[in-house]
Design a protein around this nucleic acid. Structure first.
Length: 388
DNA sequence: AACCGCTTTCGTG
DNA sequence: TTACGCACGAAAGCGGTT
């Protein structure tokens, strides 16, 4: 049976939710993003986009382009709530819904022609139900593969609907151009341009082996495929290990080691709390540090034992920091991360804890439960733990 | 040759 | 005029070991 995929993208999602919750904002230039001096735009309303404002732009620059814009802080909890509602609506239309971000999902609609008169009709029904039940608009891309559907949803937005029928994949890719292809960013675009490759047509003149020697094995074959409208198949990932991290860009650069260590401590607790909530095994701890000139370094350590409490994370992070960062060098950004985070099913779980380690682990969980309950407790807990 | 640890780079929303 | 977050995954390249 002929495959049919939908890619659905909520329009200016964060900004749309803010308008939904405060209708007096309707029709205005809305920027959702950070409030600090070094923050960037997460999402902006289409009214703001007319002034050249876009995601990832520094808020200060956005305001110079569009001084009348209203800047609002992100309310992730609220967005997550509405996202869930919308995703639930999607499940009425397909048993195979894959959420890929807070505001995007793939639907495998293969075979649903028996239920809906056409893919277009199904898409219109989805748009209608989501709008009636939540007030949000969205854009739907329909195609013979997930990759094509993803490109199609971007083609005609907001409140868009675009279908690429089988056989037209390559024509469609040519129409949208290299810059808008999923997986080609600023750096790759520039590298392609240096080889005088500026269109998908030109890219197709290169042999697979040539592209692989130019861009590496994986990216070479990726480029070879997407410029022909062939799905690069990057969705089927067998869940291995993942990572949990936290980082902060300071409002002004920090030199004071004690202050930096205090941030390391708080972030260590926060990420280990998340790990323990998931009930996972952690193997690697890393830090990330950026100086005022944007030079960024990272350092990791994988001890030959698993990591089971926040104090361990902090001690390792502090060691890594001290080994890597010269005294008196200002820090713009500081981060801590857990890597090689395995689910409970991971082979490492069994037989690695002796009795006392198990006790410590249990204690840590209890402490972190307390932390959950309030800020004053959080502070006290962190201080207490650090002095132990 | 296969795998592991470490660091950097690139891309996404 | 400049201005540039955060969290995550994938991959490359290197040195090292099995």
């Amino acid at each position: 049976m002929e495959p049919v995929f939908f890619h659905i993208d909520l329009d200016a999602f964060f900004a749309a939710v803010e308008v939904l919750d405060n209708p007096s904002l309707k029709g205005k230039c809305i920027i959702v993003g950070g409030i600090g001096p070094r923050s960037v735009v997460s999402t902006c309303s289409y009214e703001a986009r007319k002034y050249g404002v876009h995601s990832a732009m520094p808020v200060a620059k956005a305001l110079s382009l569009c001084p009348k814009a209203i800047v609002l802080p992100a309310r992730m909890k609220r967005y997550a709530q509405l996202s869930k509602e919308v995703m639930n609506i999607f499940t009425r239309f397909s048993p195979d819904v894959t959420q890929i971000s807070i505001d995007e999902a793939f639907l495998d609609m293969t075979g649903t022609s028996l239920i809906y008169s056409s893919p277009r009709d199904a898409a219109l029904q989805i748009k209608k139900q989501v709008f009636e039940e939540t007030g949000l608009t969205l854009s739907v891309g329909i195609g013979p593969s997930r990759y094509i559907a993803k490109m199609a949803s971007d083609y005609n937005k907001p409140d868009g609907l675009c279908r690429v029928s089988p056989g037209n994949e390559q024509r469609f890719i040519d129409a949208i151009g290299l810059k808008k292809l999923w997986g080609i960013g600023k750096v790759t675009l520039e590298k392609l341009a240096q080889h005088t490759i500026t269109t998908p047509e030109k890219l197709r003149t290169y042999k697979l082996e040539t592209l692989q020697s130019m861009f590496g094995q994986i990216q070479g074959s990726y480029l070879f495929n997407i410029c022909r409208g062939i799905d690069p198949g990057i969705y089927a990932q067998e869940a291995k290990s993942h990572s949990i991290s936290s980082e902060i860009t300071f409002p002004t650069d920090i030199v004071d080691r004690d202050v930096l260590f205090q941030y390391l401590l708080e972030m260590s607790h926060e990420i280990m709390f998340r790990a323990l909530s998931e009930g996972v095994i952690v193997r690697t701890v890393g830090v990330k540090i950026r100086d005022p000139e944007f030079h960024t370094i990272s350092a990791q350590k994988t001890p030959d034992y698993p990591i089971y409490n926040a104090t361990q994370v902090y001690d390792l992070a502090k060691q890594l920091f001290m080994n890597k960062w010269p005294l008196h060098t200002p820090v713009r950004l500081l981060g801590v991360g857990l890597y090689q985070v395995y689910s409970g099913e991971a082979p490492l779980q069994t037989g690695l804890f002796d009795e006392s380690e198990t006790k410590k682990r249990t204690l840590e969980k209890t402490v972190l439960e307390l932390q959950k309950k309030g800020k004053s407790v959080t502070k006290a807990t962190i201080l207490h733990t650090s002095e132990d």
